[in-house]
């Protein structure tokens, strides 16, 4: 015999709000600044740690491995390999979406970090880990993140 579950008593509800606009933050954005400055000249710029040699893109002026401030700017290749990817096939509620988008994290040649972005590809099933891809910048770059259109398979 199945047990009949008694519904839980609904007690009153009261509310409160954490208004995020009551907070402010200052963020050090050396990495993004360098990245968009590079876009202007159609370059991908990062920072290299003078101690351990790690290259970060976006390149903040801090090496977390060595715990030091770093300043050396280096240019890395626009080409790299897809380190991992995902395809958004549904929205947050689980409903299928019509325009399937592919997000990738790409390890650009010459860098030790991964750059995240959108991959332009006709069929998401063709993507694989290790697939060569390159950064696509728009024709006229003006030094914003929007200069980077997407990644494209090579």
């Amino acid at each position: 015999m199945e047990k009949v579950k008694k519904p839980l008593k609904e007690t009153r509800q009261v509310s409160d709000i954490l208004d995020m606009s009551s907070l402010k933050w200052r963020i050090e954005a050396d990495g993004l600044e360098l990245l968009v400055q590079g876009f202007k000249e159609k370059k991908i710029l990062g920072r290299k740690c003078h101690k351990c040699g790690s290259v970060y893109v976006p390149g903040l002026s801090f090496c977390r491995k060595c715990f030091i401030t770093i300043e050396d700017v280096v240019e890395v290749s626009k080409k790299g390999k897809i380190a991992c990817y995902t395809a958004s096939l549904a929205d947050v509620r689980g409903n299928p979406v019509e325009n399937i988008t592919v997000s990738v994290q790409v390890n650009l040649d010459g860098s030790d970090s991964w750059l995240m972005g959108h991959l332009e590809i006709d069929d998401w099933k063709k993507v694989y880990v290790g697939m060569p891809a390159e950064v696509v910048l728009r024709e006229e770059t003006n030094g914003t993140l929007a200069d980077m259109v997407c990644f494209r398979p090579i």
Partner: peptide, 9 residues
């Protein structure tokens, strides 16, 4: 003068 990250570092 610094954001919290650099202040702490």
């Amino acid at each position: 003068e610094n954001p919290r990250e650099r202040m702490v570092m």
